[in-house]
Computed example of a mutant assay.
Amino acid sequence: MNASDRTPADLLRSALAADPARPLVTFYDDATGERVELSVATFANWVAKTANLLQGELSASPGDRLALLLPAHWQTAVWLLACASVGVTAELGGDPADADYVVAGPDSLEAGLACSGDRVALSLAPLGRRFPTPPAGYADYAVEVPGQGDRFAPFVPVDPDAPALVVDGTELTAAQLVGRARRDATELGLGPASRVLSGQSYDTWAGVSAGLYAPLVAGGSVVLCRHVEELGAEGLAKRVESERVTLTLAH
């Protein structure tokens, strides 16, 4: 990645310029058997559509705060980069009552209703399917996002020194986030050929760094595994081999 990158959105733009066709996020849900692989270009397209939904449809702007009530999932990674593209502070597991927006999965819909602003629900079903019936009080992400534009430009340039992420009670600016991800990538020995398998949750910095930011800053890729404990040792070893994993951080 470029040394001048100071925001997560910068990192994604650099990845797109370097090699748009390479895999960036490969997601497994070992409770359902789902596997989704997103190239840099496909991931960036999802980010652009989601950022357009945020900025255009929901009228989000820099300084707004979004409670992200989702597990480690490829769509969570998309929302994190979309928030960074708009300048919205993403709060992983944040308090909906204190947030301007909430994005919730099936297990957190009731909690998300405490948000007085706009609410978006994700089914987290394979292939990003819609809810059979839209949850009361929520817009269905799978309904709203397909029609959004494939290119995104922020109305206001994102400030690298403004808050970008809150995780496990720690607030990070965009520049601090990128700096910490760079240090993590160095400590883990990551480079452009690295492929990190992570089974860690996104409720700590270590988990979200291993499962997204450190591989992104290094120009590598991540194999993000939800419910990885379902695999067992033999199944995990087979996945490491089949996915050409170079570093395993299963727990």
Score class of each variant (00 low, 15 high):
residue 2 N to V: 15
residue 5 D to G: 09
residue 6 R to I: 01
residue 8 P to K: 13
residue 12 L to F: 15
residue 20 P to M: 11
residue 24 L to R: 12
residue 31 A to P: 04
residue 31 A to F: 09
residue 32 T to M: 05
residue 32 T to C: 05
residue 41 A to K: 13
residue 42 T to I: 09
residue 49 K to A: 02
residue 55 Q to F: 08
residue 55 Q to L: 03
residue 56 G to D: 02
residue 69 L to T: 11
residue 71 P to D: 11
residue 72 A to P: 12
residue 79 W to P: 01
residue 80 L to H: 00
residue 81 L to T: 03
residue 81 L to F: 07
residue 84 A to Q: 02
residue 85 S to W: 01
residue 86 V to K: 03
residue 91 E to R: 09
residue 97 A to S: 15
residue 97 A to C: 13
residue 102 V to L: 14
residue 102 V to D: 12
residue 103 V to T: 04
residue 104 A to R: 05
residue 105 G to N: 13
residue 113 L to R: 15
residue 123 S to T: 06
residue 128 G to D: 00
residue 133 T to D: 02
residue 137 G to E: 10
residue 140 D to S: 05
residue 149 G to C: 02
residue 151 R to V: 05
residue 157 P to M: 10
residue 159 D to H: 05
residue 159 D to R: 10
residue 161 D to Y: 03
residue 166 V to G: 00
residue 171 E to Q: 07
residue 173 T to P: 02
residue 176 Q to H: 03
residue 176 Q to E: 06
residue 177 L to H: 12
residue 181 A to S: 06
residue 186 T to R: 14
residue 189 G to F: 06
residue 191 G to R: 06
residue 194 S to K: 07
residue 194 S to I: 01
residue 195 R to L: 04
residue 210 A to V: 12
residue 210 A to K: 10
residue 211 G to L: 10
residue 212 L to V: 12
residue 214 A to F: 13
residue 216 L to R: 08
residue 219 G to T: 10
residue 236 L to P: 00
residue 238 K to E: 13
residue 249 L to H: 07
residue 250 A to D: 11
